[in-house]
């Protein structure tokens, strides 16, 4: 058992193995991503019933909610990968953490922008400095800080180290985002979906949302693998297996 764990650990830590494995896995994430996003957006944007108060403008939720939820999950994943890189000095974990940052930043921005577009007709304002919106903006700044830290070091090692520390410190922001709507009076409403209660909307409204959430997570996995693969090729450019990949030859010698 232990030997197996150890073997897995070494294999997964090896960029070459990661490259081969993700090459095989990619279509299994890319195809469901496209399917879920197409089905979810057509269902949510065209067929789900309109809200009794907001009318059709509530439909932006199908873009906004999964983006916000994914942005937070990506942050946790990035910080954990960064911590693994710090503690066990696994290069692969550093590369995954680095690749996750721009994706997370993009989804945070998407959540903020769609939220503002929804806020204008619903609340009457694009932006308000309430705890939920502000903590989400702080997360965007954290992502931007991590991306800039990654870019500002010549050595990949020190870049990984410093950005992992920033990512770990920034983790405290996550419970603040999540519970801001419960701890303080905010303009942003509290969660419509909780573990304990049934959703605050009927199934014909939340089912498309669930499909969209799956679509977003599959999309993230696909993007993360693609960006990490590029990162691997860039870093391992001097190794012989990368030369074979770049010359379009099979990875294994026959």
């Amino acid at each position: 058992m232990w030997a197996l764990v150890k073997e897995y650990y070494h294999k997964f830590g090896s960029p070459k193995h990661f490259y081969e494995l993700t090459g095989k896995l990619l279509p299994w994430f890319a195809i469901p991503a496209v399917l879920c996003l197409v089905v979810g957006s057509v269902w949510g944007l065209a067929f789900a019933p309109a809200d009794y108060q907001q009318g059709n403008s509530f439909r932006i939720m199908y873009i906004h909610v999964p983006a916000a939820s994914l942005a937070m999950s990506v942050y946790v994943m990035m910080a954990v990968a960064g911590a693994i890189g710090l503690i066990w000095k696994i290069k692969m974990a550093d590369m995954v953490a680095k690749s996750a940052a721009p994706i997370g930043a993009a989804f945070t921005l998407l959540a903020l922008v769609t939220g503002a577009i929804w806020g204008k007709p619903t609340w009457g304002t694009w932006w308000v400095w309430d705890a939920r919106l502000t903590s989400m903006l702080v997360m965007l700044f954290l992502y931007v800080g991590i991306i800039s830290l990654q870019a500002s070091f010549d050595s990949a090692k020190s870049a990984a180290k410093s950005s992992a520390v920033l990512a770990i410190v920034g983790l405290v922001n996550l419970p603040i985002i999540k519970y801001s709507v419960d701890w303080w009076n905010t303009l942003h409403q509290s969660a419509s979906f909780t573990v304990s209660d049934k959703p605050a909307m009927p199934p014909e409204m939340y089912l498309p949302l669930i499909v969209m959430v799956f679509g977003y997570y599959f999309l993230f996995a696909t993007l993360l693998m693609m960006i990490t693969r590029c990162e691997i090729l860039e870093r391992e450019v001097r190794s012989r297996w990368v030369a074979r990949v770049l010359l379009n030859r099979p990875l294994k010698k026959n």
């Binding site: 309109a50 009794y52 907001q54 609340w123 009457g124 303009l187 409403q189 419509s192 014909e204 409204m205």
Partner: peptide, 15 residues
């Protein structure tokens, strides 16, 4: 300035 606060409940008009 008056802003409307939306709650977490969503419902189709028929319901």
């Amino acid at each position: 300035e008056v802003l409307a606060k939306h709650d977490e409940n969503y419902m189709p008009p028929e319901a």
